[in-house]
């Protein structure tokens, strides 16, 4: 056996330190009494109190959540359909273009997606009179467009690795296509759909560039609010907000990872049992 890879492990340690020191420092200074966010002035939780009584921040967080819930849900539907189309239909007219289109938003610089979406909404308003004002709907549409392709990528790769013979068996046993979809395909790809939804939700919740192009008066999402505050400098209330977000995300990711691992484990156990029962 080889000797311990000391260099590689110390690089891992260094890298993880690099990842976490800025975040931990940010959390540390959220408990700073002083208004100067980078100079320690004693312990205090006052910024958290101010945070939860700040109506502007709470409204922005609510708007962000609403947009993320709606856009992730529609993006998951459209993205799953696109994944099904690419994984199950070997040929249809425009397939090459379609598969290119599905990867394009992933590599498109956000500033270009933002400008082109804004130009579309402006031109649509000129030509057909809708949308007369930009806001909730236009942000949601733009978020769906760039997050659905992430869902497609995840769902498609799951479908590709799935055993097609199960679908064939269900068909041979007389199931109708929608029954196969409901009882066989969807349950098997459901972990991918859930991961896709979570990713779409997070991307929407996090986006600032595309949102800032497609928003209208009165619609400020949480990242846009943070963006405008951060431009003015470092303040302890943003540190407090950041700490809350980091904790919520860490909790959410941990819980969903555990749930996904459990369902996967149960599925594997069921398969094992089915195989054993048939022996």
């Amino acid at each position: 056996m080889q000797k311990r890879p000391t260099f590689l492990l110390s690089m891992l340690f260094f890298g993880l330190t690099f990842f976490y020191v800025p975040i931990l420092s940010m959390i540390f200074f959220s408990f700073n009494k002083s208004r100067l966010a980078t100079v320690w002035g004693g312990f205090s939780t006052q910024w958290y109190g101010k945070l939860f009584s700040n109506k502007q921040i709470l409204d922005a967080a609510l708007l962000s959540l609403e947009i993320a819930l709606l856009s992730a849900t529609i993006a998951t539907m459209l993205g799953t359909l696109a994944g099904l189309a690419l994984a199950r239909f070997r040929q249809f007219r425009g397939r090459a273009t379609f598969s290119g289109l599905v990867t394009a938003p992933l590599i498109m610089p956000e500033v270009i997606t933002g400008i082109s979406s804004l130009l579309l909404f402006i031109m649509m308003a000129e030509w057909i009179g809708w949308p007369s004002q930009r806001g909730f709907t236009t942000i949601t549409i733009a978020h769906i467009t760039f997050s659905m392709t992430y869902v497609t990528t995840i769902v498609q790769s799951r479908l590709m690795s799935m055993d097609m013979s199960i679908e064939e068996a269900a068909m041979d046993l007389g199931s109708r296509p929608w029954q196969v979809l409901r009882d066989v395909t969807l349950p098997i790809i459901s972990p991918a759909i859930v991961s896709g939804w979570l990713l779409a939700f997070t991307i929407s919740l996090d986006d600032v560039v595309i949102t800032s192009f497609t928003t209208g008066p009165g619609y400020t999402t949480l990242p846009m609010l943070i963006w405008s505050k951060v431009k003015l400098g470092v303040t302890p209330d943003i540190n407090a907000l950041a700490t809350v977000i980091v904790l919520v995300v860490a909790l959410g990711v941990t819980i969903s990872a555990i749930i996904l691992a459990r369902t996967e484990h149960r599925r594997e156990r069921d398969i094992q049992m089915a195989i054993a029962a048939n022996k």
């Binding site: 996090d206 950041a242 995300v249």
Partner: peptide
């Protein structure tokens, strides 16, 4: 998974 903006802010 945490906010991109906040990582820049950190």
């Amino acid at each position: 998974w945490t906010s991109f903006l906040l990582r820049v802010y950190a």
